[in-house]
Design a protein around this nucleic acid. Structure first.
Lengths: 347, 347
DNA sequence: GGCTACTATGCACACGTTAACATAAAACGT
DNA sequence: ACGTTTTATGTTAACGTGTGCATAGTAGCC
């Protein structure tokens, strides 16, 4: 125990109140330069660090921000977590990974959701779960959802990408290359953002939707499950010339799976990803993909949450309900004209 | 504030001490079944969750276990973090990601390293940093290192894979296929575990070592940096017929990079990975790789750390200094005989 | 100089939990 | 029936911090 505030006070020859106020730069208090110097010197010398627990008990506020995780999409998840963590720390908070599946609150788990200053939440299921769990609390848990907001809770804000625009760009790109049988590979049950635009676009371009959903049991490994979907995608009934994928990991997996069947991307089938992860530019062929500006997304989410946490009633009301970032199609090597024989029979 | 222990006590008609002891299953206390039932019912009904801060202040022990992270190797890192988190939770602790680069302790950061019950540490640099930072503390920070232990601190334990055996198996596999120009692709500065065995094996098999190190500036994205290394690996001076890689992500990147140069794996060059991540079986060609049993590793690390945390002096002394898991070569599609012209001029 | 306003500091309490110590009732042995 | 151990519960202090209230000194103002 490396010294408490009383030790510092004793050493500096002042009261612990003075120490507390000087070290926190408390507003509305003026201290003599000499006193200030003495206190800072003493604190610095003995390496004083305020006891987090005591402070928390007093303030009833932590500076912990939860990040919900899930096993799907290792790459995208980790990529986002990493960037979020960085931003959160830059804003003076500490990121904590929260697992909503297992956390029986009474089971001795140390940190409960209720102790968090806020949560950044990546999946619709988690959002519902969190909002439900905090329903009884007098103060709603500040929550920023990435992707799509699903509850009407006033404390929930959203940061997302304009998925509709992104998918539209991708769709048009494929259509202009000559594709008329364009499929969509996604989760069985997921946030509706990216999937919702697909049938609309099909109707708009007068094409039949061809939908491929990964079975729930396979969802834990996106890459591998996409590999397994390749047969369906390329099979008699599927028979698409181009495939839109819900994320890059799916796209990369689909390419691998197709190559097992002797099909080459983009010669035989074009594939488009979503996210523009580092993976997308690394894989061969390089992925044509919809870039979602992960960095800006993390930045916006962290800022929005902190603004909400630190703001008063009025300031909160001024915060945007949602921040929507632009998406931009990044054309690389995984898309090309459909094979010659396919170009004849449209629709 | 959803009720404190006093509220529960009042509702159950007992003292708060009784509530505390019953809810914690405190040893050495026997309570009447009726009392117990009353307390549990009251606590359950009002959804009582013990206040983490107050508990922490009293006990001076958290049930938080830190996991150090780093930007390199998104896949391997996330894979391990995910499994570690699960095990840690199963043991009744809460995982927290700790960032050692930025954490100025006094800068308002809520959780300091000193508040953690222990840390699981994946990289040599972090281990040194942590041990150094906790040097002044009366109680050393319990620490389990994954991979290779680098400090002599008695509170540091290690869980690792038998990398030497793993690399030996891989080397022998390549040698027996007929390869005589076997390179190694790894980090410039990394834990010496996997790299150390390579020159020894070269000497043993009487081959010249061919060493390819990723420049530090590229290290943040293993996949992409391996792609960039392909030219060196296959070039005039490099000219290897087989490549051992420090991890699967490197291997996958190398394959992609080689394909850019018109070289096919395994026809022109054989590639071996390390770790057996999900990625290894997903990528095409499927990776021949050294499996390190990530699950068992996470399990062993979490158990060892918790045993140390909860054990007394005597029990701690009985814990193994290190746990070494076996490695097993998994042969898939990325290795084959060297091309015919290469087989003639050995060495 | 007396009143006011402000500056600089301290005192004492509250937060919710655990644990050492205390106590009353019951069981037990002779 | 009486001392002794055991069982079942309660009392109270302590952890380290922030803050409301109090206080002493100092300056301003007519």
């Amino acid at each position: 125990m490396p010294g408490n505030i009383l030790d510092v006070a004793r050493q500096a020859g002042v009261s612990h109140t003075t120490v507390s106020r000087i070290l926190r730069n408390a507003d509305g208090f003026s201290y003599a330069p000499g006193t200030r110097r003495k206190v800072l010197a003493a604190a610095c010398e003995m390496g004083y660090v305020p006891n987090a627990a005591a402070r928390l008990m007093r303030l009833k506020k932590t500076r912990l921000i939860g990040i919900t995780t899930q096993p799907q999409n290792a790459y995208a998840t980790y990529s986002l977590i990493e960037k979020l963590s960085l931003r959160i720390r830059e804003l003076g908070y500490t990121p904590v990974m929260v697992d909503l599946t297992a956390s029986a609150p009474a089971a001795g788990g140390f940190l409960d959701v209720t102790h968090l200053a806020g949560v950044i939440c990546m999946y619709a299921k988690h959002e519902r779960e969190l909002v439900a769990r905090c329903a009884g609390l007098p103060r709603a848990l500040p929550l920023v959802t990435i992707r799509r907001q699903v509850t009407a809770d006033p404390a929930v804000r959203m940061v997302t990408t304009d998925n509709v625009s992104g998918l539209t760009q991708a769709f048009r790109h494929l259509y202009e290359l000559g594709h008329r049988r364009i499929g969509f590979l996604g989760y069985n049950e997921s946030d509706p953002g990216r999937q919702a635009a697909y049938p609309v676009l099909c109707r708009q371009y007068d094409l039949a939707p061809r939908w491929f959903a990964v079975p729930v049991r396979l969802e834990n490994n996106s890459f591998a499950s996409a590999v397994q979907m390749a047969r369906a995608v390329s099979g008699r009934r599927g028979g698409v010339t181009a495939l839109l994928c819900e994320d890059d990991e799916f796209a990369a997996g689909a390419i691998a799976g197709l190559s097992d069947l002797g099909l080459l991307v983009p010669r035989d089938i074009s594939v488009v990803g979503f996210d523009d992860l580092p993976l997308a530019a690394a894989v061969r062929p390089r992925l044509t993909t919809v870039g979602v500006k992960m960095n800006e997304k993390a930045d916006a989410a962290a800022r929005l949450l902190v603004a909400w946490i630190e703001g008063n009633e009025v300031q909160r009301a001024l915060l945007p309900e949602s921040i929507v970032l632009e998406a931009a199609l990044i054309i690389r090597d995984s898309t090309a004209q459909p094979p010659a024989r396919s170009r004849t029979h449209a629709k």
